[in-house]
């Protein structure tokens, strides 16, 4: 029980009670924590702040469409060895010097417990998560070329993020603790903004939040503005010294919030939508 409730959030990152609980359950049970949620709700930042909050090192593994599970463990640099054998003056009989540990391998080999972030796992091939199952279960693997057995001294705290671009396999899901980061409501958002800008005037904060949530109500937006965009925008407002009354009439620095050309057309052109006529009328 004493090792529970480790993670409490950090002074730059506000967590909901549910998320805090889920993080601690994942840590206590030694299971990977799978985090989903709208873009910009702080999925990736969560791992950074777990590491920060617990004072642990963070290892990031950014997944791309070409990533393979085996790359996360280690890579055997055959080309380098071939090159050294021909031109180098090194002794190439020691294969170990050509084995380079990947992010997962480094997390296992680390002397201390680390936080491992597997970012955007759904970017990779469909079979990618399945290929990781065994290693994540056992927290160990063997380097085939040398026969070295690498086992985790301390189970790393694994955080996996997904944008739901692809469905994840059931066998993989069964092993994870799952948390869906909901979009923060206005009270929560107020806390989040205050953490980043402690000195913000209340009027400005209220006015910008109101505008922000109005914008999010427009159903036809290709990309709704998210938390990170709100923070950028608020920063622009503060730096630009914008008066809060100005926000009520128009939206200064709109490009910080609305990123797609079509959405901008929708807003500026004032094309009406059947779904939310009232919201549009304000922007004519």
């Amino acid at each position: 029980m004493d090792d529970f409730d480790k993670f409490q959030g950090t002074n730059k990152y506000i967590v909901s009670e549910a998320l805090r609980n889920d993080v601690n359950v994942a840590i206590a049970l030694g299971r990977p924590l799978l985090v989903k949620g709208e873009p910009g709700t702080g999925k990736t930042l969560l791992a950074h702040n777990i590491a920060l909050g617990l004072g642990k090192q963070l290892i990031v593994w950014n997944i791309k469409s070409t990533s393979k599970a085996a790359d996360g463990l280690y890579v055997y640099d055959t080309v380098q060895r071939l090159n050294d054998s021909r031109f180098g003056d090194k002794d190439v009989s020691n294969i170990r010097q050509y084995i380079k540990l990947g992010p997962l391998g480094r997390a296992f080999a680390s002397e201390e417990q680390v936080v491992l972030l597997i970012d955007e796992v759904d970017k990779a091939d469909l079979e990618f998560p399945n290929d990781l199952l065994n290693e994540l279960d056992e927290m160990a693997f063997t380097v085939i070329e040398t026969g070295d057995y690498i086992a985790a001294r301390h189970r790393p705290i694994v955080v996996i993020t997904s944008n739901s671009e692809k469905e994840l396999p059931d066998a993989f899901l069964r092993r994870c603790i799952f948390h869906y980061i909901e979009f923060p409501d206005e009270t929560m958002m107020e806390r989040i903004v205050r953490v980043h800008f402690p000195d913000i005037e209340s009027e400005l904060l209220q006015a910008s939040l109101k505008k922000f949530y109005d914008l999010r109500k427009i159903e036809d937006f290709r990309k709704k503005p998210s938390t990170s965009e709100l923070l950028d925008w608020v920063q622009a407002l503060i730096v630009g010294g914008i008066d809060y009354t100005a926000i009520e009439k128009e939206i200064p620095f709109i490009s910080a919030l609305v990123k797609k050309e079509q959405d901008m057309d929708l807003l500026v052109g004032g094309r009406r939508s059947k779904a939310t006529p009232n919201v549009y009328r304000r922007y004519y």
Partner: peptide, 28 residues
């Protein structure tokens, strides 16, 4: 069951709600 036996629900229905959801439900 493992989590419960270790007392992670802290005898509260709310905690149990989140705990069970995180472990049992894998899609929003």
């Amino acid at each position: 069951m493992e989590a419960l036996s270790k007392g992670y629900a802290f005898s509260s229905l709310t905690n149990f709600y989140y705990l069970a959801r995180a472990i049992l439900v894998k899609s929003e």
